[in-house]
């Protein structure tokens, strides 16, 4: 090490530095998480190659076997695969937080004069941007393999916003899981059993009417189906109706319940 003197400490506490800057702090954390995303090969594959493979696989492998009355399967499929991808993607919010916790980064953040909400808001915003990228990428691939949405452009954009909003609300659910888990692997293991039934026992890939009666009751009303149905209405050019309203209620409700719990949990951990 060099032996140069080190600048003297600031002996007066600067009130401006001590005050929270919720927006700037959240954007700083978002910047850090986006850098992490770009440099983590596993997360990159998760955000790029995997969604493309899913579109191609469902389009060409299962697409031939699944018949949906009245609509080409690819048009039926795309809303489902959007939602499926972002739902599984929301897992990374929890896994990332659990890793930060495990490595002591959360402890460092909590010792800094930053806004208490910033770690969670910054991370969920970074994940929202990742999802935006993923949905755009999948749309392009979908259009290449024959997806022809018949809804108006504003309706389609609204549908995409519903997908992103739902993903954002789930980020808060998994923030709670991540802050309660010991490390990333535990967070992932704890999340999968919640996600799998939600995604597969839904209208994402097949009509709910093809399921046994006892499963239909769950599959019809659970949030993944509601959001998929709403996006389907919007992209297929059906009038936006109760599905859309229900989807918005789910998104708002999940955020309203889970965000405060996650922030409270963040204050306690480490």
């Amino acid at each position: 090490m060099t032996t140069g003197a080190i600048t003297a400490p600031d002996l007066v506490v600067d009130e401006r530095r001590a005050a929270p800057h919720p927006i700037a702090d959240a954007l700083t954390i978002m910047w850090r998480n986006l850098l992490n995303l770009a440099r983590n090969p596993q997360l990159l594959v998760f955000a790029t190659i995997q969604p493309v493979i899913f579109v191609l696989m469902f389009r060409y492998v299962f697409g031939g076997a699944i018949r949906v009355p009245g609509v080409p399967y690819v048009d039926y499929l795309m809303p489902g695969i959007f939602v499926q991808t972002v739902v599984f993607g929301s897992l990374t919010t929890g896994v990332g937080l659990a890793e930060d916790l495990h490595k002591g980064l959360i402890e460092r953040f909590r010792s800094l004069p930053m806004a208490r909400s910033a770690v969670l808001v910054g991370r969920t915003l970074a994940d929202l941007l990742r999802n935006l990228f993923v949905v755009v990428l999948m749309s392009v691939v979908g259009l290449i393999v024959g997806w022809r949405p018949s809804g108006s452009l504003p309706a389609i954009i609204f549908g995409v916003l519903l997908v992103l909003g739902f993903a954002y609300s789930l980020s808060w659910v998994f923030a709670i899981v991540g802050l309660s888990a010991r490390d990333g692997e535990t967070a992932q293991a704890a999340s999968f059993p919640i996600l799998a039934p939600l995604v597969f026992a839904s209208s994402a890939f097949v009509p709910v009417s093809s399921m046994p009666g006892w499963l239909q009751a769950f599959a019809k009303h659970q949030p993944v189906s509601v959001v998929v149905n709403a996006v389907r209405d919007l992209t297929l050019g059906h009038p936006a109706g109760s599905n859309t309203v229900q989807a918005l209620l789910w998104i708002g409700g999940i955020i309203a319940v889970c965000a405060p719990i996650a922030v409270a949990r963040y204050r306690q951990v480490a």
Binding site: V13, R17, A18, N36, K103, G104, E107, R108, S111, P113
Partner: peptide
């Protein structure tokens, strides 16, 4: 929090 620095038992730095 504005007056302190903390270096804990783990190297709490971002690896990426």
């Amino acid at each position: 929090r504005a007056s302190i620095g903390l270096a804990g038992q783990y190297a709490a730095v971002d690896e990426n």
